[in-house]
Design a protein around this nucleic acid. Structure first.
Lengths: 184, 184
DNA sequence: GGAGATATTGAATCATGGTTCACTTGTTGT
DNA sequence: ACAACAAGTGAACCATGATTCAATATCTCC
């Protein structure tokens, strides 16, 4: 948030700084709009990935992998949008994003838990929050200096860890962890 | 970091703003010193908790619970110290803290994995990072408006989730998850 | 084509908050 | 007691970067 400055944004958009204020009341609103857009895009992607999966458990797995792959593609952006605190007004918007993702996760966790009976009873909201943190930290933390093919391993390992956390001990045996096309 | 202002800090310390600069070259150094102190304290606590445990797996479990309990006690502080990005110079110090915690976790994960043979083979560093994220998000995210006794449940649930993530499917059966004295 | 509305510009203004420093106050050693 | 030094003060200074606004350019429609 502090890294976003009006002048560079305006320059990149090919306009003068003052022009920004014809479209946004202030910097906070500008960033909020950006966040909302990112949020909508990511939620859509997660939902779509889950919807095309054959069953609730593999929907959950697909959602996890999708999140991981997309987070890797736009690491800085996603991390900033989810984890970086900002000033109070903005924070509300960022929490909305975080909440939306958590809700998606929680929904699928509940579904998989009830329908497939594959997970132990648990607090879906708490599990979803933990899942989000697990993924974000696992993706952003140790990957800073890396690129290329190791990313695929990380996505797989994290997916396995995540599924285990939710009570799926043998994800690989069930064919839940598939090779995913990684961003180029 | 942005929330730390020299004037209030000085006031709370009972000195004038200028006096701060007799002890610290600048704000960044002040916060860095604070971070270093917090880091040392937390690492010590984690290590102590693990050291008094009877075996490597219960050491890991104790470390997880200890982290959770302490993070709850100083939620804002710990969260800021681990997760909140700041400007470049400070960031180095914050990463040190995060790294230190991760290393502690990774060490115990490796020990438990090798010695007790209780966990599947895995990348300890990645697992440790994921573990940290899982705990932080699980503790900070959904607990914002809560207090009191539900905290105990959250610590237990998160510990179980964390251990499952690392491959311990039956932590409760093994008596690994103990009732912990929570901060008052 | 031109009047009026609308959009753009970018230099000036403003707010915030870290940092400095000339000065005052306290401490120490002889 | 007093000189020399150390510590503390807080108002003034400065840098940063968001915001404003009078001037200018562009568009729209009769």
């Amino acid at each position: 948030m502090a890294a976003v400055q009006i002048a560079p944004v305006a320059a990149r958009a090919g306009v003068a700084a003052g022009t920004v204020y014809r479209y946004f009341p202030g910097k906070a609103d500008l960033v909020a709009a950006l966040l909302a857009e990112i949020s909508a895009r990511e939620i859509t992607a997660l939902r779509r990935a889950a919807d095309v999966a054959p069953g609730p458990l593999s929907a959950l797995s697909a959602m996890i992998t999708t999140f991981a792959v997309r987070a890797l593609r736009d690491r800085r952006l996603i991390f900033a949008a989810i984890a970086e605190p900002v000033d109070a007004d903005l924070d509300a918007e960022r929490l909305k994003f975080r909440k939306a993702i958590t809700v998606e996760f929680a929904t699928r966790i509940t579904a998989a838990s009830a329908g497939g009976n594959l997970l132990p009873e648990q607090d879906s909201a708490l599990a979803a929050a933990a899942l989000l943190g697990l993924l974000v930290e696992g993706l952003v933390g140790p990957l800073a200096p890396n690129t290329a093919s190791r990313e695929r391993d990380v996505v797989q390992s994290l997916t396995l860890i995540a599924l285990r956390a939710l009570g799926v001990a043998d994800a690989r045996a069930r064919g839940l962890v598939v090779q995913t096309a990684l961003p180029v």
